[in-house]
């Protein structure tokens, strides 16, 4: 994201100090009220035509970040600037019409389609809401359906009559039908069979290149991320701990959490798998209701020292070319899986 060639251009999406916390009532007889700090100050840029991946284990706030960006959730504080417009300043009606430019694809294609509507009705609904004339709308639907290899006869059928992969393609068409610039993809393949995953990833890639889309890609599968995105941001407990281009994060990771995450990804070669170093983190991530002082990661970090408990590290470049939030950054050569080529061999 500190890409010098892009630095002059206005980013499509500019997120600054995004915070989202949810109120919770703690259990117990005198349970007081607490706050879950799901997203605790996240900033990033995303440029037109690029893909930024947010990775991290479940509960780290990556999905919440995406939902705040496309305004399914209202952020507690911070700014989301889309195409130069601060979404927080828009009133309800203006926000509704602005929504056509940023859409979302959901994790569970079964749950994200209304079971009582036909595919045709599902796809026509966004067009109706945004007052796009019927003829133009039908043309768009027809084009997109053929682009994702669905037949127009499928429009009369209900979501439950399709397979998981087909449903996800319907979800993708629904997101595309308003001709958005940005699509937030919330683990779009993790609910699908592995064979279908490759198919959807290839489809997403083709659509991005043909339609000039930008993706905010939420994932926990590092090999998928590496294949699809230019930039990666690693999140831990509501904060970005390391971010940079693909190669920077994968080959020269400097944050201990990133290294642990990379080391945990399996490599489909038993020889390498057996010989490489393992980093096994102790325990579970701490509760986001009461995060540790200083560095959020210190409770599971093997490098933690007194300073980590007192002072929260800032996301900054320690002289390696990309951003790391650690007091003791150290580029390490974790052996990682080579990029998987999802394109068909020619």
């Amino acid at each position: 994201m500190t890409d010098l060639t892009q630095a002059a251009a206005q980013p499509l999406l500019k997120v600054r100090d995004l915070v989202k916390s949810f109120p919770v009532r703690s259990s117990g007889f005198r349970g007081g009220r607490g706050l879950v700090h799901a997203v605790a100050g996240v900033s990033f840029d995303l440029h037109q035509g690029q893909t930024l991946s947010l990775v991290g284990e479940s509960g780290c706030g990556k999905s919440t970040t995406a939902r705040c960006v496309v305004r399914i959730l209202d952020p507690t504080s911070g700014q989301v600037e889309f195409d130069g417009v601060d979404l927080g300043t828009l009133d309800a009606a203006a926000l509704r019409s602005a929504r056509s430019k940023f859409q979302m694809v959901f994790q569970d294609p079964q749950a994200s389609l209304n079971p009582r509507m036909t595919v045709g009705e599902i796809l026509a609904e966004p067009l109706k809401i945004h007052h796009i004339p019927g003829a133009e709308g039908r043309e768009r639907i027809r084009e997109l359906m053929s682009l994702v290899q669905l037949r127009s006869a499928d429009l009369d059928r209900y979501p439950h009559q399709f397979s998981g992969g087909q449903r996800q393609r319907i979800g993708i068409v629904r997101a595309l039908v308003l001709e958005p610039k940005l699509i937030a993809l919330d683990e779009p393949v993790s609910a699908l069979d592995v064979s279908i995953q490759a198919e959807i990833i290839r489809l997403l890639e083709r659509l991005r290149d043909q339609l000039g889309l930008s993706y905010l890609f939420i994932a926990h599968d590092l090999s998928v991320v590496r294949h699809l995105s230019e930039h990666v941001a690693v999140m831990y407990l509501g904060k970005i701990v390391e971010s940079g281009t693909n190669d920077e994060v994968y080959e020269q990771s400097a944050h201990p959490y990133t290294q642990a995450l990379l080391a945990a990804a399996p490599i489909p070669d038993p020889l390498i798998e057996r010989s490489r170093d393992r980093i096994v983190l102790a325990g579970d991530p701490p509760s986001p209701i009461d995060p540790p002082s200083g560095c959020h990661f210190r409770t599971r970090c093997w490098k933690a020292q007194d300073r980590c408990a007192e002072e929260a590290p800032v996301l900054a470049d320690p002289g390696i070319g990309h951003l790391v939030a650690c007091h003791f950054p150290e580029v390490s050569n974790v052996i990682v899986q080579q990029p998987v080529d999802f394109r068909r061999p020619t």
């Binding site: 496309v70 929504r99 959901f106 609904e125």
Partner: peptide
């Protein structure tokens, strides 16, 4: 359900 979120996202 997620389809309510998707309805929100289309405005």
């Amino acid at each position: 359900r997620e389809h309510i979120e998707s309805a929100v996202s289309i405005g």
